[in-house]
Design a protein around this nucleic acid. Structure first.
Lengths: 196, 196
DNA sequence: TCCGATATTAGGACTAGGTACTAAAAAACA
DNA sequence: TGTTTTTTAGTACCTAGTCCTAATATCGGA
């Protein structure tokens, strides 16, 4: 026994967490014990076998991939929409949205939610943001749920003013007035069929 | 032969790309051929076996994890900075930044670059955006390189005005005036040691 | 120092999801 | 029809395990 079972198991746990791609064989060598001991340890700690671990990491990746695309398309989930009138979306602030130093949401995420909603509410093929006057009225912390409400203020020949107010609970955290225009429909590029 | 080897192999390729977690057994059933045929197909198409595929996806994930954080932290690459005076960053517009419909960059990416730069230029522990007045003066297309220039206009007791102008070539595409304040340093939360 | 408990190691049988190879059967074509 | 291509079948082997039994080691206390 090198330094008691307990210590080995703790280090084992950490080692695997750091590098999930390590085999029992390699672990046995690293800790100077037999493969069987490693297997017993894994059982006691309920750490799955290598292949399961790899699979888990891979699956997590796939989930992220499908998750990140729609998030890119529309930031936040639209829960209600009345075209050319109003729309509501929710956006959950996770750790990837905040400054690491203080846990406050980075401004551009709140902007993205609001801007995205302003685009979505417009009942037209294309909408582009022309101007925006925005205010971050209160810092938003990690794990908050931000509710953005967009309202179309007026609309006249290709220009639409949308006002978006975002709340956490009953606190106003963001307000913006977006001046959108229905895009000059810039020449659409051919879809490149040569790429994979 | 269901519809020639070629067609099966094409569909095989696509199926695996869509779901890398599929076994030869399952593929054989889906295409109504034997497992051996599937294996031959995989060889001819040099598609690795299930475990290799899963491993690849998992590894990609690990790479992304270390890569995605810094990218999240500063949008665009800062190429020059003089704290409390000015800063310049470049941001390449890729296909994930544009509207699929017309290839025009989504506003919030330009905003993110500018806002990010405004935060970076401030020589203080924390900076938060309070207000912003922004203008998208020209649509930016895929594959453009956007150069953002930030200039500190004035600074007085915890409030700093930063002006950011972004260009594609010599064309002004975005302009914003950001009113930043040095954060009220919202109470830092304990790091939750209970979670895994 | 011996006893019993705990910890470790060894070994065998079995598993999934393959590779690599040989050989035979089936289908396509000319 | 014969030849070529394609498909299938079967064997031995591999990795990285599981599950189980049995034999040793090692430790701590009476």
């Amino acid at each position: 026994m090198r330094r008691s079972k307990k210590e080995r198991q703790e280090r084992l746990n950490q080692t695997i967490r750091e590098n999930p791609f390590v085999t029992d064989e390699e672990l046995a060598q690293e800790f100077g014990v037999s493969v069987q001991t490693i297997r017993l340890d894994r059982m006691e700690l309920s750490i799955p076998e290598l292949r399961e671990r790899i699979k888990y990491v891979a699956e997590k990746n796939m989930q992220d991939e499908v998750r990140s695309l729609p998030i890119e398309e529309v930031i936040g989930d639209i829960i209600d929409i009345e075209l050319d009138k109003s729309a509501i979306s929710i956006f959950d602030v996770k750790k990837e949205h905040v400054f690491k130093r203080n846990g406050i949401a980075r401004g551009h995420h709140l902007f993205a939610q609001a801007n995205s909603l302003a685009v979505a509410v417009i009942n037209d093929e294309m909408a582009l943001t022309g101007k925006a006057d925005i205010r971050f009225t209160q810092p938003v912390k990690e794990n908050s749920r931000v509710i953005a409400k967009a309202k179309v203020i007026r609309s006249q020949k290709g220009r639409t003013i949308v006002e978006v107010s975002s709340f956490v609970g009953s606190d106003l955290v963001f307000r913006g007035e977006f001046s959108m225009f229905r895009a000059p429909s810039a020449e659409k590029e051919e879809i490149d069929e040569t790429r994979n």
